[in-house]
Structure formats: C-alpha cells, structure tokens
Amino acid sequence: MPEHDDNRSLVAQLLIMTVAMFGFGFLLVPLYDVFCEITGFGGRPNAAAAAAVEMPDLKREVRIQFVTTVNSNARFEFAPDVSNMTVHPGKMYYATFTAKNLTSQHKVAQAVPSIAPVSAAEHFTKIECFCFTTQDFLPNEERAMPLQFIVNPELPEYVDTITLQYTFFDLET
C-alpha cells in the first residue's frame, strides 16, 4: 500500500515540523536576547564588554541621566548619588547609587536596568554593575552600590542625553 506509507512519512514530517516550531517558540527567548544585544531593541544596556578599551572623544559631551523607580512591591529607598553626569564617549566613569531597606527583615532585591533612547542602548556598556546580580539586604541596611560604565564613541550623533533607569524590585514578593 504505497499510499499508506506516503501518509505515514508525510505525517511524520509534519509532526516533526510541529514539534520543531514548538521548540522554536522557546528558542525565541535566547534569540530575543541576542537580538536585543545586537540592535539595542528593548533598551537593554550592554553588559560588560570584555574589551572595554578607553578611547576618549574629548570633543563630545553626552549627558547621562540616572532615573530610579522603586517598584511598589519593594519597601526600599533607592536613588542615585548624583542624578546627572556629563561624560565624554570612550571614557570610563563611576557612579554610585544608595539603597536602603526600610523593613526590619532580611530582603533580596534586584535592580533592572533600561536605557532610553533605544538607539543608545547598544552603545552604553556597563563594566561593573550592582544590577548584574541579586542583592542581599540585612534589616534596615543602607549601602552604596557602584556602577562603572563607558559610552561607546559610536553613539549616534543625534543622541545627546542618555537615560539610565533602574527599577528596583523586591524578589520575595
């Protein structure tokens, strides 16, 4: 019965396609991350480029604006020590933020970074950031959290202000 066999192999192919597409749905998750890294889609700043060579462009100034949002689930204070910085592309800078646990409990929190405008995201590289890992806080602990970053000289010329925003989440609620 040749037709029977034809059906079997075609059905098998189609089922493989179905399963593959189901897998593809999940594969989109890492693909999306790669896509975001490359294009700056989603406003995600670059995490730690291995070769962050300093090549300062002293003729150009870019304003870095720090914005913090504490999610209403987190009973924390969280703010930048300075809210604006003027930087030269290609030069390394440091900034600190201060977070304070307002509860008398041990807390685990995380700051989630985002960049605006989106076209700047791929050109903003964090060398070191408290946002890379979750942060443990003792009851009522207040502490400074460091950030080290560099703005890539290839930043499009129509960008003169970069907003780095952190949303502070309590991971236990």
């Binding site: 914005v67 209403s72 405008p117 076209s119 129509y158 003169d160 202000t161 907003t163």
Partner: peptide, 16 residues
C-alpha cells in the same frame, strides 16, 4: 521623531 537632543525639561511618567 528620533531627534531628542537638547531637552529643556525631563519628566518621568510612571504608570500605576
């Protein structure tokens, strides 16, 4: 639309 250079005022809008 992309050209957001030289803003005079920045306003952060948070939705609840």
């Amino acid at each position: 639309l992309e050209d957001s250079r030289n803003p005079d005022i920045s306003i952060v809008i948070t939705a609840y």
